[in-house]
Amino acid sequence: MGPEDVMGERELVLSRRGLGALALAGLAGPAFAQGFPSRPIQVIVPFAAGGGVDVTMRVAAEAAGDLIGQRFVVENRGGGATITATTAVVRAAPDGYTVLTAPTTMVINAASRDNLPFDWKTDLVPVSMIAKLPLVVVARRDAPYSTMRELEAAARAARDPLTFSSGGTGTVAHLAGELFALRTGIKLQHVPYRGEGPALSDLIGGTLKVSFATLASVSGQIEGGTVKALGVTTKDRTGLLPGVPTLVEQGYPDYDVSAWLALVAPRGTPQEAIDAMQRAFAAALATQSVRDRMKVLGAEPVPGTPAELAAFMAKEAAQWAEVVRAIGLKPE
């Protein structure tokens, strides 16, 4: 699905989406009455156009731009495992007019790579959480297990490690599988693919038995019955698959995993700019139009304050650093 398929017509005009006079009055307060922004704001996405992170950010950015009074202009700078784009934003003028779409990859890179040209904890400042992209554990249709407990039992009984696939080494889906193995003490063998599409094809074809994947990539196959969902990896059930229980519900109380994207800015960005952007995105993510459009993408909007985002990213960094150390992950 490309950006043009998602963005559609300008359906985010406030008067048509019932944000309400009270909300509009609140948005017209001090944070939007100051000098920022006086021109468009560049949002760097560290992936190629058309992917889940890119399109999700475009949906949020268009709505936030309508609210803040200036466009958020999305620019894609893929490659370099997100390091190239992140470095560019770290080195940009800290004036609020260049910001970064920070994905989960950023904190994974910090744990798995040496000599990065930046330290995200000190060179970037949090602005707003944008969305989470739940993961789902799926099995081929005829697999002899239908729950995570049954999968765990099968892995314990197996003579050789049970194999699972993901869209690539070092991805959130890969590490989600490794985390499950660490938390349960079972043996799993990762089979990396170059993308979730090929992994899903082999799962449906019977070459593989289990895959950890983003909801967006497998929801159609789950609904069509070509694969079956064993569990959702987020702490709470997703409204996108309300009938599928979480791993927490199945007896894994500390298992809460998702891909995510957030908005961050260079260190030294004025507080006025951070506050204005945070308020715009929080209001945009609360609109039903944005929530509906993100649902199609397999994403769940998660607005929040800079302090909440900082705490969340620190927790994520610690969790993935634990997994990276345990499996000795090195970038390809």
Score class of each variant (00 low, 15 high):
283 A>M: 02
267 R>Q: 14
138 V>H: 10
261 L>H: 15
259 A>S: 15
3 P>I: 04
322 E>V: 02
26 G>L: 06
34 Q>Y: 03
233 T>S: 05
65 G>N: 04
1 M>W: 14
322 E>G: 01
264 V>A: 15
83 I>L: 15
213 A>K: 09
108 I>G: 08
216 A>T: 10
144 P>N: 06
92 A>H: 07
242 P>A: 08
9 E>H: 05
163 T>L: 12
124 L>R: 08
19 L>G: 03
237 R>I: 12
39 R>K: 04
76 N>E: 09
302 V>W: 13
187 K>Y: 07
136 V>S: 08
249 E>V: 01
18 G>S: 10
66 D>Q: 13
21 A>N: 11
33 A>V: 01
303 P>L: 13
249 E>Q: 09
264 V>N: 11
204 I>P: 00
114 D>C: 05
20 G>Q: 13
272 E>P: 00
175 L>F: 08
161 P>I: 10
324 V>E: 12
56 T>I: 14
11 E>M: 03
301 P>I: 10
298 G>C: 06
330 K>G: 11
157 A>E: 13
149 R>F: 03
316 E>A: 10
164 F>H: 03
82 T>Q: 15
297 L>N: 05
304 G>C: 14
77 R>V: 14
173 A>T: 15
189 Q>Y: 05
197 G>P: 00
81 A>I: 09
124 L>F: 03
55 V>T: 08
173 A>V: 11
44 I>T: 13
242 P>N: 11
3 P>W: 09
214 T>P: 15
24 L>I: 08
192 P>R: 05
184 T>G: 01
295 K>I: 14
28 A>I: 00
161 P>S: 06
233 T>K: 09
226 T>L: 08
35 G>F: 03
183 R>D: 03
140 R>L: 06
196 E>H: 12
39 R>T: 10
138 V>P: 05
86 T>I: 12
64 A>L: 02
248 V>Q: 02
109 N>S: 10
2 G>Y: 11
179 L>E: 12
115 N>G: 12
65 G>C: 00
117 P>T: 11
234 T>C: 10
221 Q>G: 01
104 T>Q: 15
220 G>R: 15
124 L>D: 12
131 A>R: 06
12 L>W: 03
55 V>A: 07
224 G>C: 01
99 V>Y: 13
222 I>N: 04
196 E>V: 09
208 L>E: 13
74 V>S: 09
117 P>C: 14
113 R>H: 03
70 Q>T: 07
315 K>Q: 07
112 S>E: 14
213 A>W: 07
159 R>Y: 00
252 Y>D: 13
162 L>T: 06
286 A>Y: 04
37 P>W: 00
6 V>W: 13
220 G>E: 12
134 P>K: 02
313 M>H: 06
114 D>P: 05
138 V>W: 06
215 L>N: 11
81 A>V: 14
268 G>H: 04
109 N>Y: 06
40 P>Q: 00
193 Y>N: 10
138 V>R: 03
84 T>A: 11
328 G>Y: 04
144 P>S: 08
236 D>M: 07
141 R>A: 06
278 Q>T: 10
203 L>E: 01
272 E>T: 11
57 M>P: 09
156 R>A: 02
211 S>M: 07
317 A>M: 09
268 G>L: 05
75 E>T: 02
128 S>A: 15
63 A>E: 04
246 T>C: 03
